[in-house]
Design a protein around this nucleic acid. Structure first.
Length: 435
RNA sequence: GGAGGGAUGACAGAGCGGACGAAUGUACCGGUCUUGAAAACCGGCGUGGGCUUGCCCACCGUGGGUUCAAAUCCCACUCCCUCCGCCA
């Protein structure tokens, strides 16, 4: 949620910032008007309440003095005011809800550093990395055997079975098998082991309450992209950012504890409602995938470093896996609702000849903290909202695809990089196995 | 799932419908004393909101209700504890 106080103080600044991501100033003006009206009614209602409290005190006194007549007289006055107050309160509730509903739909202010632009075509490529780059080797040209799509390799080797996934849960629910399943498990362990000394490992619930989903900004705006379990008022989490952000919801943290760094691997569920029919093959876009997330609650001063650390960790995993990737600085128009600044990592997957987003490293400033009410106590005793940052390291379905394509051999096998040896054992080279 | 008990400030723990935003203790912060520390003593010590910055309002699990007045009474829900049942 954006800061209403800031909106009052510098409405033009807020409007200009939001205009960069396509929010019309009339929407903001409506909120400002609503806020003025809300405060006006608030003052009326509070004045009435103060009077009622005073009169009630007098009733008490009168009754203590055994002055029944006076007590009844004052009580009657208070009753009249009570009716008035009830009306004002109802108006107030309506206004407050309206204001809150509108405010919840407003996205975060983009950071000034985020480039201008309206959609993904305006994102700025910061740099690329590939194996051998440091030695001056040119951007790789991939061999013919690396130009096979992962769904073909997966079917050939019996490690990815999209058809059976469809049978069980419908389209875009992958089923990995054999070494393919083990690879997925290996990637999670490989990444968690890399982070766990510095980030506390968490295994959160995979479902969340509406309130929990609100805190990150996934609700109410993106309800159509989430799986809902209506009978139990639960939502399937689209990322572990959701439970991690609510771990300290409503708390005031000691500044000395910050930054609090967390890592978690969970399944991530996405309906992809707006993307029906796009990228439906293989693992390019799926309804369920595993992802390791890095997360930090920090002070505003720590946020830049925390963000950089997550980015560096995601990159180092990609480098360890020997994958080709690039960094995109998301333009204002392409930022997620809650983010002020986001760097995306895209891996190049030669078989499908595409860059695939495998990580999104975001700085939310106090946007999520305001919704989740996560604060910290500063050294001078006051409280302030924390900043939250997070990023994937990494999203495994697409990494799986890029690995299988990049390391596809002329003989049809897949020879995985050595860093996975501790996890893959004798399956480091994947050949077809008949079960 | 059944039966009972409970939910109050950082923690523990009081609280008869009327001066209760809430006793008391611990913790914490400041001061006195001390060479220093501890102890003792004194003082401070919740969060949010509104505006005339001095006041006002809200908050005692959540949401309703009764009342001139609710932490206190009533209803519903959630969560926790104990016992029973079921279960990986």
């Amino acid at each position: 949620m954006i800061d209403l106080v800031q909106l009052r103080r510098e409405p033009d600044f807020v409007k200009a910032a939001l205009a960069r991501r396509g929010v019309s100033s009339s929407e903001i003006d409506a909120i400002i008007a609503l806020d003025v009206e809300h405060r006006r009614v608030l003052q009326d209602a509070e004045a009435l309440r103060a009077q009622i409290k005073e009169l009630s005190r007098q009733v008490g006194e009168a009754r203590k003095d055994r002055d029944v007549a006076r007590a009844e007289l004052v009580a009657e006055q208070s009753r009249t005011l009570g009716d008035e107050e009830r009306g004002a309160s109802q108006t107030l509730d309506v206004l407050a809800r309206e204001l809150r509903d509108k405010l919840l739909m407003v996205p975060n202010l983009p950071s000034p550093e985020a480039p201008d632009g309206v959609d993904e075509n305006d994102n700025v490529e910061l740099r690329r990395w590939w194996v051998g780059m440091d030695q001056g080797e040119p951007f790789p040209t991939f061999a013919e055997h690396q130009r096979v799509a992962h769904w073909d390799i997966g079917a050939e080797l019996g490690i990815l079975d999209m058809e059976t996934g469809v049978k069980i849960a419908g389209s875009m629910f992958p089923l990995y098998r054999g070494a393919g399943s083990r690879l997925l498990r290996s990637l999670g362990s490989f990444a968690l082991n890399a982070h766990v000394g510095d980030y506390e490992e968490i295994r959160p619930p995979s479902f969340a309450l509406t309130e929990t989903m609100m805190s990150t900004g996934h609700l109410p705006k993106s309800a159509d992209d989430m799986y809902a379990i209506e009978r139990d008022d639960l939502w399937a989490i689209p990322t572990s950012e959701v439970p991690l952000t609510s771990m300290h919801r409503g708390e005031i943290l000691d500044e000395a504890r910050l930054p609090i760094r967390l890592t978690a691997q969970t399944a991530c569920f996405r309906r992809e409602a707006g993307a029906a029919g796009r990228d439906t093959r293989g693992l390019l876009r799926v309804h369920e995938f595993d992802k390791v997330e890095l997360f930090a609650y920090c002070t505003p001063d720590q946020a830049i470093d925390a963000h950089a650390d997550i980015l560096a960790r995601a990159e180092s995993l990609l480098q360890a896996l020997g994958l080709t990737y690039r960094l995109l600085d998301l333009c204002a128009g392409d930022l997620g609702t809650s983010s002020a600044r986001t760097i995306d990592l895209e891996v190049f997957s030669p078989g499908v000849d595409r860059w695939l987003e495998v990580s999104s490293v975001s700085w939310f400033r106090d946007f999520q903290a305001r919704r989740a009410n996560v604060r910290y106590r500063t050294s001078d005793g006051t409280t302030a909202l924390v900043h939250t940052v997070n990023g994937s390291a990494l999203a495994w379905a697409r990494i799986w695809a890029a690995l299988v394509e990049t390391y596809h051999q002329p003989d049809g096998s897949v020879k995985l990089p050595d860093v996975l040896a501790p996890y893959m054992g004798d399956a480091l080279t994947i050949t077809r196995k008949v079960w």
